[in-house]
């Protein structure tokens, strides 16, 4: 993807998500699996590329910043608070773009394949865990959303987890083997 295409698509996603936040937040599923990932994606697309190389720990630290930021907004009370309060919602959108999307977009090309694989495996298991929690929760987790939506979200999250695991398996089977990955000499 060219740099210009990345910037344009990042800005387009921002234009589709930020002004229409209330539509995205009207349903639990589109809030969690639409609004949040799109804001992160926008930040990732707009992240600066190139620049001087950095050590693995720095790239990993950037991914961890993103992970904590996303984890925070997955706490039901803060998801609820974002719906109830425009100030909290602004903080949500700004932080998901700047503290989750940008660090991921900046760090991803710098991450070693092992670290990338770890992040993806972790993401898949998080979808699985959250899906199970949403399905199993005996009460409504958000005062702004119905329990039915929680069930739908849980099912979709589980499906995403399974799809990610299958895709990872396929990639592992189809991709270069360990013998080929090592330099011959």
């Amino acid at each position: 993807m060219t740099a210009r295409l990345r910037v344009v698509s990042g800005l387009l996603i921002l234009a589709a998500t930020v002004p229409f936040a209330s539509w995205w937040e009207a349903g639990l599923v589109r809030h969690v699996l639409g609004h949040v990932p799109l804001l992160v994606a926008a930040g990732a697309l707009l992240a600066p590329r190139g620049g001087r190389p950095v050590g693995q720990p720095t790239a990993i630290a950037a991914v961890l910043v993103a992970a904590f930021c996303i984890a925070f907004w997955m706490i039901p009370r803060w998801l609820d608070a974002a719906v109830n309060s425009p100030a909290v919602d602004a903080a949500k959108m700004a932080s998901l773009v700047l503290l989750a999307g940008v660090p991921v977009g900046w760090a991803w090309p710098r991450l070693a394949p092992l670290a990338r694989g770890f992040v993806l495996a972790q993401l898949a298991s998080m979808f699985g865990i959250l899906g199970a929690v949403w399905l199993a929760a005996p009460v409504r987790l958000c005062n702004n959303y119905l329990v039915d939506e929680q069930t739908v979200l849980g099912r979709i999250a589980l499906a995403v987890a399974v799809a990610m695991v299958v895709a990872g398996l396929v990639a592992a089977l189809a991709g270069p083997g360990i013998t080929r990955a090592r330099p011959a000499a």
Binding site: L64, V65, D80
Partner: peptide, 30 residues
């Protein structure tokens, strides 16, 4: 230096989640 950065991020992130759940006790708005 890189490892110290990772440790600092983990500490700050854990602190944020601790604060956001009032010591892992408040997860829902209710």
């Amino acid at each position: 230096g890189g490892l110290a950065l990772v440790a600092a991020v983990v500490a700050a992130g854990a602190g944020l989640l601790w604060w956001g759940t009032e010591g892992l006790s408040v997860f829902t708005a209710e």
